[in-house]
Simulated scan of single mutants.
Amino acid sequence: MSSAAALTESTAYGVLAKACEQVGADPTGAKLVRLGSNAVYRLAEPVIVRVSRDVDTVENVTRQVQVARWLEQAGYPATRALDVDQPVDIDGHVATFWVSVAETAEYAPIQQVADLIRQLHDLDPPSDFVLPAAQPFADLDSRLSVLANLDESDADFLRELIGELRSRYETLDFPLAPGVIHGDANVGNVILSRDGEPVLIDLDDFAIGPREWDLVQTALFYERFGWHTEDEYRTFVEVYGFDIMSWPGYRILAGYREISMTLWLAGKAGADEEAAAEVRKRVESIRSGGSRRDWAPF
């Protein structure tokens, strides 16, 4: 494990300044966009800088840069890694530099989301580096420590449900051929460029796995959360060419996604009472089979 200092606004800016010096960028006037799992800065020039929490993520961060450069070579519309020697390791944190797509995040229409996912699934895997195999439950297992922030009964319920979903997942017969997947494909990860063209962002979870993983969130957002209309979902299905909700395994993947979203929020619950209350509400709706329409976005 690394001995990197905690990622605060102060330490993140220190890493930013040193990383910019190393690659020849100018941190003057940099604006902190977000401080979460990463610190994200927007430079005065059209560049986004991401500073990771610690150097233990260097393998994943390196792969993100490799994926971006592979997609650029393929002519695929995704976020571009700046043409500098990166990632940059500074004081136990990893910084990466990205070409800014736009000044504000405007999400693409659903037909463009579906088209970009379809185009991605048409690509052959890269030849000069290896994408990992998708291991969704290994990812959940790595986050189970956040259950310590929950009531014991809620934590026990989620552990048991994860075990049930894992068993059922292992028996699934996926109708689509496996291949390159984004791993977190949804409308929130397709934004419009300054020219109004759709661009895929957030390359953290690229893998080789069942393509159904890139379809389930759009279905879930429509069917359970009401974040997409029926017309929008039907457009998504028509453009992509497959309706995941017609497959019996959909409910297992949807259940997984609900738990994944809840575990992410549980990580904030220890220090944020609003997040803790939202987690309790989510767990109760999963336990009772109640509506998810009142889940608040975080």
Rank of each mutant, 00 (worst) to 15 (best):
M1S: 15
S3K: 11
T8P: 08
G14C: 04
G14I: 04
A17P: 00
K18P: 00
A19Y: 04
C20Q: 09
Q22W: 13
G24I: 05
P27F: 11
P27G: 10
T28A: 15
A30D: 05
V33M: 13
L35V: 02
A39F: 06
L43R: 03
L43F: 04
E45K: 13
P46D: 12
V47N: 03
R50K: 14
D54C: 12
D56S: 15
D56L: 09
T57E: 14
V58L: 15
E59R: 15
V61R: 04
A68I: 09
L71G: 01
A74D: 06
P77H: 01
A81R: 01
L82G: 01
L82C: 10
L82P: 03
V84K: 05
D85F: 09
V94M: 05
T96V: 06
W98V: 04
A102Q: 10
E103W: 12
A105T: 12
A108V: 11
L120K: 02
H121K: 05
L123C: 06
S127R: 15
D128T: 15
F129K: 04
F129N: 09
F129P: 03
V130G: 08
P132E: 04
P136D: 10
L150I: 13
L161G: 00
L161H: 12
E164Q: 15
L172S: 01
L176G: 04
A177D: 15
V180T: 11
G183Y: 09
D184Y: 14
A185I: 05
N186S: 11
N186H: 15
V187I: 14
G188L: 12
I201F: 05
D205R: 08
F206H: 07
T218V: 14
A219K: 07
A219S: 10
F221S: 07
E223N: 09
R224V: 06
F225I: 05
G226H: 10
H228K: 11
E230Q: 15
D231R: 13
F236G: 00
F236I: 03
E238C: 07
E238W: 06
Y240H: 06
I244F: 03
I244H: 00
W247Q: 00
P248F: 07
Y250K: 09
R251S: 13
G255L: 01
G255V: 10
Y256G: 00
L263N: 03
L263I: 08
K268G: 00
G270K: 08
A271C: 08
R282P: 03
S288Y: 08
R293A: 10
D294M: 13
W295N: 02
W295Y: 12
